[in-house]
Design a protein around this nucleic acid. Structure first.
Length: 556
DNA sequence: AAGGAACACAACCGCCACGTT
DNA sequence: TAACGTGGCGGTTGTGTTCCT
């Protein structure tokens, strides 16, 4: 760590401070007014100068620091150094379990709004939180685990109950504007149209029967997996991605959408709306009434259309969360007029956290005790859960396309959690069950429509994540009992969208139908293609616009 | 013990919003 | 109203440390 070098220098004056006080020719920064500004790690001397300057002049006017203090640092660098390391009341050290819990909650609520999150964590900086979160994402990714613990999803689900009641059926022609105002979450058919278009080209692109696309997606969106892995891509970027994904005027999004391009100049929330998704079918009223069915519109519904549909669109909205996220938002109005997006739901969840004990954390991890490790323990337990799941997998594999189209949206999730045990997938997903889940999809030229050929996916490197503490099996089962998820990862995966855009180049793409980790490993192994950021972007793009379906059949 | 992988963190970069002129 | 400066934010990179094989 660069600054450790700095710290180590405190004992004795570093040479560079004596000989070449502030400018290291190896760390020359951009020139500002003819002055070569230093870059790189800060020295203790620089810190002292900066602290002294701030004490005298206060925070702000950071460019003046360089001008008047003798620091050869740009204002930005000074501000960052002060904010992240020098300002008083900074809390250093590892995050406590409580802080970790709060971060997870806040992230579920805010997404990658690190500064806002930091505001809720006194003494912590946005950079710290960001780093922590990114590390967490990586670990969770590697372990194939949900980013959010089931409790968070569950609570979000509960809070979304009100919203799903008003989720409309996507029917009839609607103009753009109508869609913007609608409460439904629509799946852009262009995705699947493009997918079909690629069937002749891509060896492993499955054939897509004419089933409601949304049901396909919904079928798997409720899984904990889809409470995961949603780096919040700036909407602007997602916009660009969307344009790349769905290029050309031929990419119709149905219901009057001629092209995603048409939204480029529109406000982001319009785009978000256009990418929203709807329940294809009205849930069983009985179920609905008993609130045993729920929809999570994505844990990061930044792009959730409802959030902005009733708001005047403005450019300012582009990078900001919908106002409904804020406490001052009158949710009652939302409930009455529109489904509540998940952000609201999670927000409400945060405001009314679960009873003590629902988020208990075993902090016995020697290294990073706390929620993070608790989550990682989940991986372990998921693997062990396979022992109990084989029969359930077979059940799910009996689903027919018709079933899916008709009612599986509500019911097929029952077995998914248990399906984590499959040894083939790092996620523990049974390829069998998975393919049964997406049984309508059959690979042309392969046997994907039935039981997938297991050897197709042999050689997958299954990584096991070291787990320190117990997210106990009991807890896992408890969660399972309370909440079932489905998740055809592939449907939201990077390559699914790549397929949509005709970008698939090899069969590894189809690996995404199994899971992301498989995709990564398989790509590295067999295809040699990089797991680029594009994938993440696409994935997050998809994720952010996907609803998640959770079934809570065992809820009271 | 050595080498590589993974982790953790500081710092930088680019973009954007906002205020001032 | 446009141009400019400033501050803030989020994403990314680079590097030292720790862990694992």
């Amino acid at each position: 760590m660069p600054c450790k070098t700095t710290e180590s220098e405190e004992g004795s004056l570093p040479k560079d401070q004596c000989e070449s006080p502030l400018i290291n020719e190896n760390n020359e920064g951009c020139a500002g007014g003819g002055v070569v500004l230093k870059k790189g790690p800060w020295t203790s001397t620089e810190d002292a100068i900066l602290v002294d300057f701030v004490k005298k002049h206060g925070e702000g006017n950071w460019n003046a620091v360089q001008k008047h203090s003798g620091l050869f640092r740009c204002g930005k660098s000074c501000r960052l150094r002060w904010a992240n390391h020098l300002r008083p009341n900074l809390k250093k050290g590892a995050f406590t379990a409580e802080e970790e819990r709060l971060i997870i909650e806040l992230h579920a609520k805010m997404g990658n709004k690190w500064a806002r999150m930091a505001a809720h964590l006194p003494g912590r900086t946005d950079n710290e939180i960001k780093n922590y979160w990114n590390t967490r994402i990586k670990r969770r990714q590697r372990a194939g685990l949900p980013l959010y613990p089931p409790e968070v999803c569950f609570q979000a689900l509960q809070e979304s109950q009100h919203g799903q009641n008003t989720v409309g059926v996507n029917g009839g022609d609607r103009g753009h504007h109508d869609i913007l105002l609608t409460n439904s979450y629509e799946i852009p058919d262009v995705i699947f149209d493009s997918l079909k278009a690629n069937q002749g080209v891509l060896p492993y692109v499955p054939e897509l029967p004419d089933i409601p696309t949304s049901s396909m997606l919904l079928k798997g969106l409720g899984s904990p997996q889809y409470c995961t892995l949603q780096p919040i891509m700036p909407i602007q970027k997602r916009l660009r991605e969307s344009n790349e994904l769905f290029p050309g005027p031929s990419a119709s999004v149905g219901n009057g959408f001629s092209s995603f391009e048409q939204f480029q100049d529109d406000t982001c929330d319009k785009v978000a709306l256009s990418f929203g998704f709807s329940l294809p079918l009205d849930p069983d009223p009985a179920i609905k009434n008993s609130e045993s069915f729920g929809v999570i519109q994505g844990c990061h519904s930044l792009s959730n259309g409802n959030s902005s549909a009733s708001k005047p669109t403005s450019r300012a909205v582009k990078l900001e969360l919908p106002s409904l996220q804020y406490a001052e938002t009158d949710f009652s109005n939302w409930v009455a007029s529109s489904p509540r997006p998940l952000l609201e739901s999670v927000d409400a969840f945060i405001k009314s956290p679960p009873p003590a004990g629902t988020f208990e954390i075993d902090c016995s991890s020697p290294r990073n005790s706390g929620l993070l490790d608790a989550l990682l323990q989940e991986s372990k337990n998921l693997s062990s859960s396979k022992k109990h799941s084989s029969d359930k997998s077979s059940n799910s594999s009996s689903a027919t396309p018709g079933d899916i189209a008709d009612s599986s949206t509500l019911n097929i999730c029952e077995t998914e959690w248990a399906d984590y045990g499959d040894p083939i997938s790092p996620f523990g997903h049974s390829t069998t069950s998975l393919f049964s889940e997406i049984s309508p999809i059959s690979a042309s030229g392969s046997s994907m429509d039935g039981q997938p050929s297991a050897e197709t996916f042999t050689g997958i490197i299954v990584k096991s994540e070291p787990v320190d503490i117990a997210w106990t099996s009991d807890r896992e089962e408890e969660s399972t009992a309370r909440l079932s998820f489905t998740q055809p990862d592939a449907l939201l995966g990077v390559d699914w969208l790549e397929q949509s855009s005709g970008c698939i180049k090899d069969q590894s793409t189809f690996a995404t139908f199994l899971d992301d980790d498989f995709d990564i490993d398989y790509k590295h192994m067999a295809a040699g293609t990089s797991t680029s950021n594009q994938g993440w972007g696409l994935n997050s793009f998809a994720w952010n616009n996907m609803p998640a379906v959770c079934q809570m059949s065992d809820l009271p």
